[in-house]
Design a protein around this nucleic acid. Structure first.
Lengths: 342, 342
DNA sequence: CGCGATCATCGAACCGGTTCGACAATCAGG
DNA sequence: CCTGATTGTCGAACCGGTTCGATGATCGCG
């Protein structure tokens, strides 16, 4: 493999001149520049990443830490990851994907060893143990997910409060007065998934203001428990005419459950989910939903991260906490209510 | 950040001694070793990855190139990726995930710059343009997916022929004599997804041998086209009693389609899918399936890759083409046939 | 024609590790 | 007690880039 020394020799100049000719950081005469570029081309020269990292203290690599525990919804994770990797590449960065169970150790490894210029943390929990480590690291960091303490880091998340309100408002406007909200299991919340509560609490609050009855239930985000949860909830609240689902697995289970119970959507039951557009498209789910845009969130996090990485000025700016507004995508699964129980 | 020079100074030895004490590559007296280790601990020393890569010509990073075009099924990709990243970490490697559209350029970048010690290529097409680049690269490579030319690379894939035969055999044994096989769209095949044909051809061949009628149809792997395809196929072949589905989107669409047509599974129609166990579990799909194990494939590819990376002897071994055997996971969606059309 | 300013290039040092060969100290054997 | 082998440590070189300061050539100007 050709080094910059080979290129310099081939062009008949010194190594430093070759370097300047390639980087353009100092004026170089036109014919020397041309000779160097031709030599580099001829030798198929590519700078050694390790050497460059050592010299410049920059790796042009971003770290992406994702958690994959029982309750993480893998298809959604894929969207986040694509948002991050594609945006990073557009900005000139590669992405080191770390899925190790021990996130703290993984984070220490990639930051202390200077493998990465910055880090995106996904599935951030309220009291995430990785946060103090990231704050102490020399590289800047961005979060996807809202922790209790946002200091020292840029934070990006869906506006779950607004999502809850949008769902309730929509069905209230159609005339519904009794709703069921299906959330993720409580142990997701206990592990730090406060977003489940943020949506639920905002929905409950809005329902109270509007005089709507809202039954909040929780359940597993795996099958077949998610289907069972739906059945039990519908049994327990026979007068409910609308179903709000903040739980992908439960959305996926609904067609089968509805079929088995002989329920038509939206004639017998209005339904709104909360998930990504990709999820809906891939699985042929004909339910309206409040869109979470995981790829957009990942993309935003990377943009801000790279800003801080590349500009010393940006590194001193105040940290941001930015929410993206949920949008209701209507697929016709909501209508004016008809009493469910005959 | 502490360097090995700081550690050496703190321990009162030379840099080289510190290095040997930490690596154990030369005998070091007990108390010097102890002093060095204590100094490293006290200073929270972590070797600089770039410097180490430069000195050792090893990065301890593997490249993972995944394609995400219209027809790639993102949830399945996630499983592949997890199989790769988790196994890589177990073996001491981090993973650089590249999802760039221009795979050839991406591959050149990460191999020429020596960012990675080896490369796993996913979604390998028959005449994949990345293959010649990878063969010419100094790093070893492993493929997930079977191309026309396997030379110079280790190849891992599901045994799609066997998968096709297993599906046909199973329904034949139950007494079915007319089946429909739903495959992925033809343009997937044109772009190099020969596995679609491998399964189909083996299924057709086995069907012929057994005297079973098999209608092979193709369709989009997106919604709602996948559902439409199912409807059209069932309309076109009313006497078929069994459905084989090598198309995740079509599997996902089936509950809705079956519901709409008033078809009961397995009473009216026996169904076998071809996808991962994770897919079935996540989406509550109560259909028996021939399991493709994406995580296992990714894991196998990495193991072999790392063997070649780490052992010069292994690098000279003949290249392998290894298929994993499909297993039929029964979820009760097959039964003895009853004529569908009354 | 001589002066200083400008421009292009070079040599050397540095980034932070690893590794080779040399050397001093210790040890066992004759 | 001297020798030769063994053990532990050190200094220097190297990996392949980047960058600073210096130097020589060229130029315009008085």
């Amino acid at each position: 493999m050709a080094t910059i020394g080979d290129v310099a020799q081939e062009a008949g100049v010194s190594r430093s001149t070759a370097s300047y000719a390639l980087s353009g950081k100092r004026p170089i005469s036109e014919d020397v520049r041309r000779r160097v570029l031709e030599a580099a081309e001829a030798l198929a020269y590519t700078p050694n990443a390790g050497a460059r990292a050592l010299a410049t203290a920059q790796t042009k690599v971003l770290g992406l830490l994702a958690r994959f525990h029982e309750d993480e919804f893998a298809p959604a994770m894929m969207q986040y990851i694509l948002g991050v990797t594609n945006t990073a590449r557009d900005l000139g960065y590669d992405t080191l994907l770390v899925t190790e169970a021990d996130g703290v150790r993984a984070l220490r490894r990639i930051t202390d060893s200077r493998m990465v210029d910055g880090v995106v943390l996904m599935n951030v929990a309220q009291d995430d143990a990785r946060l103090p480590v990231l704050r102490a690291a020399p590289q800047p960091g961005a979060l996807v997910g809202l922790p209790d303490d946002c200091s020292g880091l840029d934070v990006f998340d869906l506006d779950f409060e607004e999502a809850g309100r949008v769902m309730v408002d929509h069905l209230h406007r159609l005339g519904h007065r009794e709703l069921i909200l299906v959330s993720q299991p409580e142990h997701v919340v206990e592990r730090g998934g406060a977003y489940v509560w943020r949506l639920r609490d905002a929905a409950l609050e809005r329902a109270r203001q509007l005089g709507v009855t809202l039954h909040a239930v929780y359940g597993e985000s795996r099958q077949p428990a998610a289907g069972r949860l739906l059945n039990e909830s519908l049994d327990a609240h026979p007068a409910a005419t609308g179903l709000l689902i903040n739980n992908e697995a439960a959305v996926a289970a609904l067609p089968t459950v509805a079929h088995a119970r002989g329920l038509r959507v939206p004639e017998d039951l209005s339904v709104i989910g909360r998930h990504s557009a990709d999820f809906a498209a891939t699985f042929s789910l004909p339910y309206s939903f409040v869109e979470s845009a995981p790829d957009r969130l990942g993309s935003m996090a990377v943009r801000q991260l790279v800003r801080r990485v590349e500009s010393p000025a940006a590194r001193k700016e105040p940290y941001v906490v930015r929410f993206i507004s949920p949008e209701l995508v209507s697929l016709g699964s909501t209508a004016h209510p008809r009493p469910r129980s005959s």
